[in-house]
């Protein structure tokens, strides 16, 4: 079975933001419920949203609010119990395991809280992995250039355990970039990092958004939401706020926590 191609229109109907850009992500009445023992727990309930291409979106919420579930559904790591998820015009809902796998390979790239680098591969090779998986050789520049762009031009042949946490997360970002996919999903990317390193990582993600990538950052740190184009706030599996930062978008170097 192939993905259903869905025509996406310029945005304008979701809670007051309209850019006229193409919709990257569209979720309609999406719910995700899990069975825990004999009882059912709703991680997400009736979520509707649209995210434009090139937006820097921060998904904010306390633990258990459903923010990681939201990102997993967009990234096709998980499937919705109800509703429809369409990403870059492809309907994920009802897709087979192989199609989901292909979708992830061709559409999204992940950045994890604990980096999840392959400990047996050097920084260069970890980034090369992103390139090899998508088979987009030659696109988006040389692997060494990508690493240099995240400030790791001198650490190419180091193994993960020879790098600091910040450096490891930079490699993870470089790996995501190397896939050439336009949607970057970052789940608590600064969760394991100190403030200064965290800010540097956010700066890098901001640069990717500026370069046209759609970036979704999941965090429980409200301060981080200040650098976003758009903040989606979740509570108990529902969107309780969706819009630009309350005090307006600020540059990364103005953050403090």
């Amino acid at each position: 079975m192939a993905f259903d191609e869905v025509t996406t229109r310029p945005t304008g109907n979701q809670q007051g933001r309209s850019t006229g850009a193409t919709v990257a992500v569209q979720m309609t009445d999406v719910s995700r419920r899990y069975l825990v023992g004999s009882s059912e727990v709703a991680a997400l309930e009736g979520v509707n949203l649209e995210i434009d291409e090139g937006q820097f979106v921060v998904v904010l919420g306390p633990s258990g609010s459903g923010k990681t579930t939201l990102v997993n559904l967009i990234g096709a790591l998980d499937v919705a119990t109800d509703g429809e998820v369409v990403v870059t015009g492809r309907r994920i809902t009802g897709a087979s395991r192989a199609e989901l796998s292909r979708f992830r390979r061709d559409t999204v790239s992940f950045i994890f809280q604990s980096f999840n680098l392959f400990p047996g591969l050097t920084a260069r090779e970890n980034v090369q992995f992103g390139r090899d998986v998508t088979r987009r050789r030659g696109e988006g520049g040389d692997v060494a250039e990508i690493l240099a762009s995240v400030g790791l031009g001198e650490r190419l042949d180091h193994f993960p355990h020879e790098l600091s946490g910040g450096e490891q997360q930079r490699v993870a970002i470089a790996r995501a970039l190397a896939t050439g996919n336009r949607i970057m999903l970052a789940d608590e990317p600064t969760g394991e990092l100190d403030f200064h390193t965290g800010v540097q990582i956010l700066g890098l993600l901001q640069e990717q958004a500026d370069a046209g990538h759609t970036v979704l950052v999941v965090t429980h740190n409200r301060e981080i939401s200040r650098v976003a184009d758009r903040v989606i706030e979740l509570s108990s599996g529902r969107i309780v706020r969706d819009g630009p930062p309350i005090e307006g978008k600020v540059p990364v170097d103005e953050l403090s926590w």
């Binding site: 796998s101 292909r102 992830r104 390979r105 061709d106 790239s109 992940f110 999840n116 992995f129 998986v133």
Partner: peptide, 12 residues
């Protein structure tokens, strides 16, 4: 975990 990461990146 390595395997999960690879699957997340779409490796079959």
């Amino acid at each position: 975990r390595d395997h999960a990461t690879m699957l997340a990146f779409g490796l079959p």
